[in-house]
């Protein structure tokens, strides 16, 4: 029975994972994002592109509650997020990476990931202080889980290195590993390939594809480099000066005159 329903799933209207409804964010006089509408369907790998200062990171900050929208709503699985604190939003299942890497620098790679598993710990502070069996079992499980994530992101060999000692590319990857460890339903990646050479970019995008499959994630990916997203995303939103200028499949976006002019600066 269950299998059948799942197969019929296509016919049923599935609730979107995230819906941004007419969201505007103003900083003083500047509208960093204006009147944005965006929908992410379950399991999608969605691209968000646009030139420098287009407002992409601001969209992430609006979704994760770092900024509150000046107007409009952000709805996650049917629930309004406006006004919730960042940590609350993360516990509902949205996790992000940062454009300007923000690792827990003095801690080792494994601990960076273990921290992110805290949302799934069943042991409370008293258990932690007493170090009782519940804590030991629970922490062991979470550590195993963290190691599993490190393995699937090919970081297991550096698991006991200080995270600030990692080469740049691995730091980016660790940010992704850490975000996955919160078991998000929606993963937001902010230019995960920034500063990498073309070869590394291709590898990273391959990795993103794998983690999406392995961890059943819905992903919203910001990328500056249009070619990179074209290869991997099913659907792309293009922002320019805070406004949506195009939306659609990569092959459509590629030919869109407005997008071309935004990127070429005509």
């Amino acid at each position: 029975m269950e299998a059948q329903t799942a197969e019929d799933g296509g016919a049923i209207r599935i609730m979107s994972v995230l819906e941004i409804r007419d969201v505007t964010k103003k900083f003083g006089g500047l509208a960093a994002v204006s009147g944005l509408n965006l929908i992410i369907e379950p399991g999608e790998l969605l691209g968000l592109i646009g030139p420098n200062g287009a407002g992409k990171t601001t969209v992430f900050n609006l979704i994760t509650g770092v900024y509150k929208p000046s107007s409009g709503d952000v709805i996650f699985q049917g629930r309004r997020l406006n006004g919730l604190r960042s940590c609350r939003i993360a516990s509902l299942g949205i996790c992000r990476t940062f454009q300007n890497i923000r690792l827990f620098k003095q801690l080792n790679v494994l601990d960076n990931v273990r921290i992110a598993t805290h949302l799934h710990t069943k042991a409370n502070l008293l258990d932690s202080i007493l170090r009782n069996t519940r804590l030991l079992n629970n922490d062991r499980e979470l550590t195993e889980f963290s190691l599993m994530i490190l393995r699937s992101l090919k970081l297991e060999d550096v698991s006991d290195q200080r995270s600030s000692d990692l080469p740049y590319g691995l730091q980016r990857r660790l940010e992704i590993a850490r975000a996955i460890a919160t078991k998000p339903k929606l993963l937001l990646l902010d230019e995960p390939a920034a500063g990498m050479n073309p070869q590394e970019k291709v590898e990273l995008m391959e990795l993103v594809r794998c983690v999406r499959r392995d961890f059943h994630l819905t992903i919203l990916l910001i990328e500056h480099d249009m070619r990179v997203v074209m290869g991997i995303c099913e659907r792309i939103y293009v922002l320019d000066y805070g406004e949506l200028i195009a939306e659609g499949k990569p092959e459509v976006i590629r030919k869109d005159p407005q997008v071309l002019s935004a990127y070429l600066g005509e």
């Binding site: 827990f104 620098k105 273990r114 992110a116 042991a123 502070l125 932690s128 922490d139 850490r178």
Partner: peptide, 21 residues
Amino acid sequence: SVRGLTWLSVREDEIAADAMG
């Protein structure tokens, strides 16, 4: 403990800690 590591995360980077829930 994992819960205690979250205390360290506040020291290391509060914004990132917040984003990790």
